[in-house]
Simulated assay, not measured.
Amino acid sequence: MSILEQKDRFEVKEESLTRAELVRNASPSLAEIIKGKNLIILPSHETVDEFYAGSLDTLDYLNERNVDAEIYSTDEDYKELSLHGADFWLGTFFVSSIVLPLLTNLMSSYIYDKLKAQKDDGISLKLIIERKSGSTVSISFDGKIEKLEKVFTAIKELENEV
C-alpha cells in the first residue's frame, strides 16, 4: 500500500460523552436550546468551536425533514473549518435513539442526493448515539462511500438494542 492510499476505519464502541455533559459544558443559552434536541451537530475533530464547512447546510437538511436538530454553538461563536480535498467530512453527530429509525434513510439521501457523492469518494463521520438509559455508543467511519453500508448496518443493529 502506498503512502497515499487510505485504509478504511470503522469502529463501534461504548462512549463516555452524554447529553448531561453536553448541557453542563454549554453556555446557559445554548444549554437551554440543546436539552431536548434529537440530534446535535458537534464541533469537528473534537475541537471546542470549529465545525466542518457545510454543517449549517446539514442542519437545514435535517430540520427540513422534521428532525429536531441543532448546532452545538451560538451564532456568535460559530466558526467553520474548511478542508480542501475530494473527501466529504460530515462531522460528529450526537443522536437520540428516537431518530435512529429515520437516520439511515436521511444519511443515505443526504450523501447521495444532496452531496452527489460517488461510491469511490471518501467520507468521514462519527455518530454518538444516546440510548434510552442515557449511556452512549459511537460509530466512527473513515473510508470509501461504497463501504458506508457498515455504518447503516450498525445503526440498524443499535435500533434493536436501544
Results as ranks from 00 to 15, higher is better:
residue 3 I to A: 15
residue 4 L to G: 03
residue 7 K to A: 11
residue 9 R to I: 06
residue 9 R to S: 00
residue 10 F to A: 03
residue 10 F to E: 00
residue 11 E to N: 06
residue 13 K to S: 11
residue 14 E to F: 04
residue 15 E to A: 03
residue 15 E to D: 14
residue 16 S to Y: 07
residue 16 S to F: 13
residue 18 T to G: 09
residue 19 R to K: 15
residue 19 R to S: 13
residue 20 A to S: 05
residue 21 E to W: 04
residue 21 E to M: 14
residue 21 E to H: 05
residue 22 L to Q: 01
residue 23 V to D: 03
residue 25 N to F: 02
residue 28 P to V: 01
residue 29 S to E: 12
residue 29 S to L: 08
residue 29 S to F: 15
residue 29 S to Y: 10
residue 30 L to W: 04
residue 31 A to H: 08
residue 31 A to R: 12
residue 33 I to R: 15
residue 33 I to V: 13
residue 34 I to T: 02
residue 35 K to E: 05
residue 35 K to W: 02
residue 36 G to M: 01
residue 36 G to K: 05
residue 38 N to K: 15
residue 38 N to C: 06
residue 41 I to N: 08
residue 42 L to M: 05
residue 43 P to I: 12
residue 45 H to M: 11
residue 46 E to Q: 12
residue 46 E to M: 10
residue 48 V to D: 14
residue 49 D to K: 15
residue 49 D to V: 13
residue 49 D to F: 08
residue 49 D to S: 14
residue 51 F to G: 10
residue 52 Y to D: 06
residue 53 A to C: 11
residue 54 G to C: 10
residue 55 S to W: 04
residue 57 D to I: 09
residue 59 L to E: 00
residue 60 D to G: 13
residue 60 D to M: 13
residue 60 D to V: 07
residue 61 Y to H: 03
residue 62 L to N: 05
residue 62 L to S: 04
residue 64 E to P: 02
residue 64 E to A: 10
residue 68 D to A: 11
residue 68 D to G: 07
residue 70 E to L: 07
residue 71 I to A: 01
residue 73 S to V: 09
residue 74 T to Y: 01
residue 75 D to G: 10
residue 77 D to T: 12
residue 80 E to Y: 02
residue 82 S to Y: 06
residue 85 G to P: 02
residue 85 G to Q: 02
residue 86 A to I: 15
residue 87 D to W: 08
residue 87 D to M: 12
residue 88 F to G: 02
residue 88 F to C: 08
residue 88 F to R: 11
residue 90 L to G: 15
residue 91 G to R: 05
residue 93 F to G: 08
residue 95 V to K: 00
residue 95 V to H: 03
residue 96 S to C: 08
residue 96 S to E: 00
residue 99 V to L: 12
residue 99 V to W: 01
residue 101 P to W: 07
residue 101 P to I: 10
residue 102 L to A: 08
residue 104 T to F: 07
residue 106 L to S: 13
residue 106 L to M: 06
residue 107 M to K: 10
residue 107 M to I: 00
residue 107 M to A: 06
residue 109 S to W: 03
residue 111 I to G: 03
residue 113 D to P: 00
residue 113 D to T: 07
residue 117 A to F: 01
residue 117 A to K: 04
residue 118 Q to Y: 00
residue 118 Q to P: 13
residue 122 G to S: 09
residue 124 S to C: 06
residue 124 S to T: 14
residue 125 L to N: 01
residue 126 K to P: 01
residue 126 K to L: 14
residue 128 I to A: 04
residue 130 E to T: 06
residue 131 R to L: 00
residue 133 S to E: 02
residue 133 S to H: 09
residue 135 S to N: 11
residue 137 V to K: 12
residue 138 S to W: 10
residue 141 F to S: 14
residue 143 G to C: 12
residue 143 G to R: 08
residue 144 K to L: 02
residue 146 E to L: 10
residue 148 L to M: 10
residue 148 L to I: 15
residue 148 L to E: 14
residue 149 E to G: 12
residue 150 K to D: 13
residue 150 K to H: 06
residue 151 V to G: 04
residue 153 T to L: 04
residue 155 I to H: 08
residue 157 E to P: 00
residue 157 E to R: 11
residue 160 N to T: 02
residue 160 N to W: 07
residue 162 V to A: 05
